[in-house]
Design a protein around this nucleic acid. Structure first.
Lengths: 197, 197
DNA sequence: CTTTTATATTACTCATGAGTATTATCTATC
DNA sequence: GATAGATAATACTCATGAGTAATATAAAAG
């Protein structure tokens, strides 16, 4: 017979955060539909009605997680706007630096990343926004003559997103690469290609 | 009051194929959990028990679709083994040709592609297999001196899969690119990079 | 032309899991 | 120290949708 009523020292916001944390783990591991509220509350040592004190529905808590990922990532990509007038040398380093920041966030928030990037229904829209932002950057540099003029930067930007998406899973989350190495590898690949010269 | 019993001229295999077709559309559009057997049978003009004449469960029909995509794609990638002793010129054309075949299959089987590549739970494993096959190809060419020797072909192969995955959705399925154009664009990007020389 | 087999239907069961009504206890405030 | 508001538990409801039992008819086999 568990204790009824408010427990000694219990503070709502802590239960809420615990629920968010466990929910993120479950959603990331099982996807939306296969995640049960009953499992989340069990893992958070809370009962089901308590869950509904803090979140109006299963969708609501999921959306809160997605929103959190979305807004942080948007900020990071926003910040990755390149300053104009870079030297060619620093261009590579600059892009690498911004990418590293993004990968670092991914690495430190794996559950959220999986949810926002792979599980959420509007993962597609989010990736589109990020691609658009990247494309804007690339176009500027292309106009400045850094890149070949005949390349479609829409394709490049989308490709970059595809690469990030895939390598985050197979290299970053498996521990095969650190954010910095991964960023460096990608930048060199995209800038120079693989062919011998 | 619909007619009971076997209908004039009705042939099981036709109902079965119709169910597969409608199921593919629904799964591709809504995902696994949000697809209802009741919707599939409605769209196929069949009743629910008839569905279970041909498929033992919802999972079974889903897996049949996934398996079909998986095996065709495996074949295509298998065939994309490059012959040894290619000239440098023909290497680019050769890779582009194989990629075009894959994109053509994707374009002609959009529902199946979405299911096998994006919705299925073992989409990740499938992509891993494809990446492994691509990597094998690339390593051979790298040993033959076509590619820069210091590049990690595991990363390149996975990147290629990521690019295919993303561009299939945003370029191929939207009609922005035909298979051949898309393949060409990707090959040039990966081989040469984007930087001005 | 009778029997068997394949194809189909109507009308159900039943498990699951999201969400709730009710009640209890703790803490802060006056 | 009485009261209000916040936090929690027990024990439920209820919709949904996968899967089934029982039955009927067409076509093929003998």
């Amino acid at each position: 017979m568990g204790q009824r009523g408010r427990r000694r020292g219990s503070i709502g916001v802590e239960s809420r955060n615990l629920l968010l944390e466990k929910a993120a783990e479950e959603f990331a591991k099982c996807g939306f539909h296969e995640t049960k509220i009953s499992t989340i509350v069990k893992r958070a040592n809370v009962t089901q009605p308590s869950f509904y004190l803090y979140f109006s529905s299963k969708d609501a808590i999921f959306q809160e997680l997605v929103g959190s990922f979305h807004s942080t990532l948007s900020d990071l990509v926003q910040q990755s706007r390149l300053e104009s007038g870079l030297k060619l040398d620093s261009l590579e380093a600059e892009i690498e630096y911004k990418l590293t920041a993004i990968f670092t966030y991914f690495k430190n928030n794996q559950d959220l990343t999986k949810i926002g990037f792979y599980i959420s229904k509007d993962a597609g829209r989010l990736k589109g926004q990020i691609a658009a932002q990247i494309e804007e950057n690339l176009l500027k540099e292309q106009r400045d003559g850094y890149f070949q003029p005949d390349i479609d930067m829409h394709t490049v930007a989308q490709s970059l997103v595809g690469i990030m998406e895939r390598l985050t899973i197979v290299k970053l989350f498996t521990g095969m690469r650190e954010p910095g190495n991964l960023a460096n590898e990608i930048v060199r690949l995209i800038l120079n290609g693989i062919i011998s010269r």
